[in-house]
Design a protein around this nucleic acid. Structure first.
Lengths: 230, 230, 230, 230
DNA sequence: TATGAATGAGCCTTCATTCAT
DNA sequence: AATGAATGAAGGCTCATTCAT
C-alpha cells in the first residue's frame, strides 16, 4: 500500500518518526532488554533476541556489533531513561519535603515498573561493572542529580525540616536501595515470607513504608511536631 | 557406612570431623558458590566447578545430581549460614535500641563479606525464585526472625523509644535493602559516582549511615531529646 | 555506451584512458588480487574486496559475477601480465647466452615482485587448476614462449655454447621453479634457516645463484674454457 | 572380547602399539592433513576433519586444542617425516656424486608422493609462516642437513668433481625448488602446456631432468670429460 | 548506475551430561 | 569410589549472495 501511495512523508514504515534502521535498532534493544532480563547475559541467546526483534540475526550484528555491545547499549538506554525521568520531576521547583516524597515515589515506581532494569544491573554488577565502566555516557548523568539532592537538603535544613549533615550520595543510595531490594528480590522474599510481595496492594504498602523511612530519618531532632503524613 | 561409623581413627582425610564423602560435598559446594557468584547460573561451568573442587566431574554428578540441584544446595547452605548468624546474635537478650543497632550492623557486614551470596540471590530472583520455592528448608528459618523483630519493636515502643505501627517484615526488608543494594550494586554505583565504594573506609561510612537511617526512622514523634549516636 | 563514445572530453574519472566501468573493474581486480593473495580463496572476503575497491558490493557482483569468476579474472590478468613482460624481452634478438640470462633474471624478479601472483597460483593448484582449466586465454600465451626458448637452445647449441637435448618445457619449469620456490616459500625457509631470505641483499644473491645454476647446467660437456660470470 | 581376555599386552584397540588416545590423535592428524591439503586452512572444515577421523568433534578439540593448533601439529609432523627420511639416507657414507644424486631423487620423490605437504607449506607461506615461526621443533632439524650438504660439497670439490664456492643453503633450496615447483604447480603447468605432467612417465622424466640440472651445474669448469649419467 | 538492507546456511567452538572401565 | 573418553545439541558469529529502491 505504501508502494502505491508514494507520499514522501511516510517512510514506508509503521514506526512513527523513525526510519527503517532506527526502528530496527529500537526493536533490537527492546528485545535484548527482555531477553537479558529473563536469562542474564550468559543465558541470553542472540538467536532469541533476533527472533523477538523479528529481525535477521545477521542484521542484528550489523546494527549492534556483538552480544557485549548489545548489552552495553541496552544498559545505557535504560540508565538514560531512568535519569531522564528523574530530571523531568523538576525537583528544584518543589518545596523540600514534597520534593523528597516525589523523588522517593518516583524511584519506587521506576523500580517496580522496570524489573528488567534491575535484572540487568544485577548482572552488570556480577561482572564488576565491566561494561558500564567503559561507558562515557552514564556517569555525567548523575552529577546533576546529586547537585539537586544537595540543594534539596540545604533548603530543607534551612527551613528546619531536615536534619543536617546528610551526605547526598548516601541518601540517594538509601532511597534507591529501599525500593530496589524489595523489587529486585521480590521473588525470594515472597518465598521466604510466604507472601506475594508483587501484588499491587503490597507494592503500595511498600512505597508508603519507604517514604516513611526516608522522611522519618530526615526529621530533625527538634521536629517533635512534625510527622510525615501520606 | 562412614556415617554409621564415625570412628575418628581413620585419618585418611584432611578435613577434621568430616568423612570423605562429606568433605568432598563441602568442597563441591564451596567451589560451586564461587563459580556461580562469578559467572551466574548460565555462565558457570560444571567443568570449572569440578576443577575448583579438585574432584572428578563424574563424582560431582554422583554427589549432587546436576547443575540445578547444585545451585539449590548452595543457595540453602548460604541462607542457613546467614540466618544462623542472626540467631546467634541473641537479640532478645539486648535492650531494644542496642538490639536494633546490632541487627543492622550484622546485616551490613554479612552483605559486605559475602558478595557471593548476593550474586546468588540476584540470579535466583532473575529466575523468579524457581529453585528456592522448591526448598522446604529456607522458609521456616525466617518466622523466628520476624517474631524476634516484632518483639523488639514492641519492647521499644513500650519504652517510648520506637514509633508504633511498624511492620516487622517491612522493617527487615528495609534493613536488608539499605546495605544489600550498596554492596550488590557497589560496582555500578562506584562507576556512576566516580568513587570506590568498596574501600574499607567507605564501607564503614555506609554502615553508620544505615544505622542512622534505621534508628532515625524508628524515633517516635515525641523523641525530641534523643538522637542516635554512633 | 561509454565504449562507443570515447570522447576524452568527459573527465569525470581519475583513471586516465579508462571509462568509468573499466576503471571500476580494474579497481576490483586489484583489490581482489590483494585480498586473495593475503587470505587465499576461501579466506578472502567479498566484503573486503568491495571495501578495498571502494565499490558497492552489489556492483561488484554486477561487474564480475561471483567470487569464482572474480578469481579467474584475476588469475588471467596476472598470467597475461607475466607473459607480456616475457614477450617484451624480445629474447630472439639477443645472443643465446645473454638471452638466457635475461630470461632467468626476468623470472626471478617477477616472482620476487609479485608475491600475490605466487599465492594465487598456489591456491589455484590446490584446487587442481579447476578455474584455469576453464580459461581459454592462458594456454595460447605459452606456445610462443616455448618456441622462443627452443629457438634459443638451438642457436646456443649451434654456437657450441649450450648442451644438446634439452627439453624447452623442462628448462622453463626449472628456470621458474628455481626462483618461484625461493620466493613462494620465503617465509618458511627463513624460519627454517634462521635467516631473512626476503632481505634485498639476499634476493640478489639468490638471483645470481639461479643464473649460475641454469647456465652452469647448460654448459656443454666440452666447454672447459667457459665459466658463467656475473 | 578384550574384556573377557584381559591380556595386558593388547590395549583393547586395533591400532598396534598405540593406546586409544594416541591412536585417535594419529587419526586426527591424518584426517587434518588431507582436509587442509584439499581445502587450505580457511577452506578446511573442522567437522569434515572429525568425520574423516571418525571421532567426535568435541574430542578433537580435547585432543588438539583448536583449528590452528591442529594446523601446526600437522605441519610439524610432516616436516619431521621429510627430514627423518633425509637423515635415513645416510648421505655421508656415500661418495659425493652419488650422494647428491640420491638426495635429489629423494627430494623429487618426496614431493611427488606428498602433495598434501606441498599444499600445506604453500598455505603456511601465505600466512607468512605465522605458525611455523612459533614452532621450536622444526628449525633444529635443518642444521644437520646443511652440515651434511656442506660436507658433501667439500668432499666433491676435493675430489675434483664439484665446482667450488657453492652455498649449501642455496643449493638445497635449488634442489628442493626444482622438484617442488613441478609438483606443487603441476596442475596449472599441465593446463598451460596442455600435457599431463602428473603421469608416472612424466614424473620420471622430470626427476632425471632435475638430476641433470643439479649435477650439470655442480660440474667444475675443468670437468670436460665428465657428464652426469643416469 | 548505484546502494543499504536483508537472508539462510554454515563455521568454530563449547556445554551439560553419560558411558565404559 | 573413582576416572578418562565420549556425545549430541547448541551458541555466537560470519559468509556469499540477493532484494528493493
Amino acid at each position: 500500500m505504501s508502494q502505491s501511495a508514494p507520499s514522501p512523508a511516510r517512510p514506508a514504515e509503521a514506526a512513527p518518526g523513525l526510519d527503517r534502521p532506527a526502528a530496527a535498532r529500537a526493536r533490537i534493544l527492546d528485545a535484548a532488554l527482555a531477553e537479558f532480563a529473563e536469562h542474564g547475559f550468559s543465558g541470553a541467546r542472540v538467536d532469541a533476541i533476533a527472533a523477538r526483534a523479528a529481525i535477521n540475526k545477521r542484521m542484528l550484528y550489523a546494527y549492534v556489533g556483538n552480544k557485549e555491545a548489545l548489552w552495553l547499549a541496552v544498559l545505557e538506554r535504560v540508565y538514560a531513561a531512568m535519569r531522564e525521568g528523574e530530571r523531568a520531576l523538576n525537583l528544584q521547583r518543589l518545596p523540600p519535603e514534597e520534593a523528597m516524597r516525589v523523588l522517593v515515589r518516583y524511584n519506587a515506581r521506576f523500580h517496580a515498573e522496570h524489573p528488567a532494569f534491575l535484572a540487568l544491573l544485577n548482572d552488570e554488577n556480577r561482572q564488576r561493572a565491566r561494561n558500564l565502566r567503559r561507558s562515557t555516557r552514564v556517569q555525567p548523568m548523575y552529577s546533576p542529580l546529586l547537585a539537586t539532592i544537595a540543594d534539596l537538603l540545604r533548603r530543607g535544613e534551612a527551613e528546619g525540616l531536615f536534619r543536617g549533615k546528610v551526605d547526598p550520595m548516601q541518601l540517594y543510595i538509601s532511597i534507591a536501595g529501599l525500593s530496589y531490594f524489595y523489587c529486585s528480590n521480590q521473588h525470594t522474599l515472597s518465598a521466604i515470607f510466604g507472601r506475594d510481595l508483587g501484588a499491587p496492594g503490597e507494592m503500595l504498602v511498600r512505597e508508603q513504608h519507604v517514604v516513611d523511612v526516608v522522611l522519618g530519618y530526615l526529621r530533625p531532632a527538634s521536629a517533635l511536631d512534625r510527622v510525615p503524613e501520606v
